[in-house]
């Protein structure tokens, strides 16, 4: 072996080592965050943590029931608003690749994805909160739904684009009308990808704080009325972590752990559903 070959092999080894090193480095932040939150949060979690609302300063105990229920309602309502619109737009974009409307809606969806969440929050504040004259959970849901939309639209579009045209032809050649072809053939075949897009969008917005600051606003009591202010996990964390009281810090740590577990769980469910619903073409 000549020295040139040895040098090349040496360079290649160095390069490989670097790639592996940096690939492992990506895992470190996640593990560090997980470890820290679990360490701080796990001791604060018990039964009363889930069923009680926060106690006034100075009283021990108290929980995050109001924020937990609030988060479920706000995110749930946002999902109900965003999922049908998102999936239908995704179908339109995958079916009409070149139309003018497709071009503009694809562009707007891409830009929407980049709009800072606080800007969406302030816009919804001026659209809904101000005219109505009160903070409300529903306005928070609208803000979150706007944030979910681009993720659902693009994942639906990308999934359906991968389905072969022969599948559509098979359906149409059997005399199937267009709407039945979409509902009975195209959607079921792409359901894995569509569901995973929906789950990821839910995971993505579950921790959003900024758009809720001046929409859902927060509420120290348990509320299920979506026209009234409502608490949510990220809001609770924001409010309590910045407070000067140890009791409230504890609640914030516990809530952080719950939120993190929620997002993790959604990601795991997404992986499992994609595997289970994956259709072999």
């Amino acid at each position: 072996m000549g020295p040139r070959i040895k040098l090349r092999i040496g360079k290649s080894t160095v390069f490989k080592t670097l790639v592996i090193l940096f690939a492992s480095a990506c895992v470190i932040p996640l593990l560090a965050i997980l470890g820290y939150i679990i360490k701080e949060g796990i001791t604060k979690i018990n039964w009363s943590f889930f069923v009680n609302v926060p106690k006034p300063v100075g009283e021990a105990g108290g929980g995050i029931a109001n924020a937990l229920v609030g988060s479920f309602i706000i995110v749930g309502v946002a999902a109900i608003m965003a999922i049908p619109v998102g999936i239908l737009s995704g179908i339109y974009l995958s079916e009409n690749k070149t139309s003018k409307l497709a071009y503009w809606s694809r562009l707007s969806v891409d830009i929407l994805q980049g709009v800072p969440s606080i800007v969406i929050g302030i816009v919804v504040y001026f659209w809904i909160v101000k005219p109505i004259g009160s903070f409300s959970a529903i306005s928070g849901s609208v803000a979150l739904a706007i944030m979910m939309l681009p993720i659902i639209v693009r994942s639906t579009e990308e999934t359906l684009k991968l389905l072969p045209d022969t599948l559509k032809e098979a359906a149409l050649a059997l005399g199937m009308p267009y709407h039945r072809m979409i509902l009975k053939v195209i959607l079921p075949c792409g359901i894995g990808g569509i569901l995973s897009g929906v789950m990821l969008s839910v995971a993505r917005i579950a921790g959003e704080t900024a758009p809720l600051l001046f929409t859902a606003f927060g509420n120290p009591y348990l509320s299920t009325n979506i026209t009234k202010p409502m608490h949510s996990l990220p809001l609770l964390i924001f409010n309590y972590a910045t407070s000067p009281y140890d009791d409230w810090h504890n609640l914030a740590w516990g809530a952080s752990l719950i939120l993190l577990l929620w997002v993790l769980l959604l990601n795991i469910i997404t992986k499992l559903t994609t595997r289970k619903w994956n259709i072999q073409l």
Partner: peptide, 16 residues
């Protein structure tokens, strides 16, 4: 298309 059936170049059974 109900009266005139069609079989394609590549087999395309519905995968679902």
């Amino acid at each position: 298309r109900l009266k005139i059936g069609m079989v394609f170049q590549r087999p395309n059974p519905f995968p679902n």
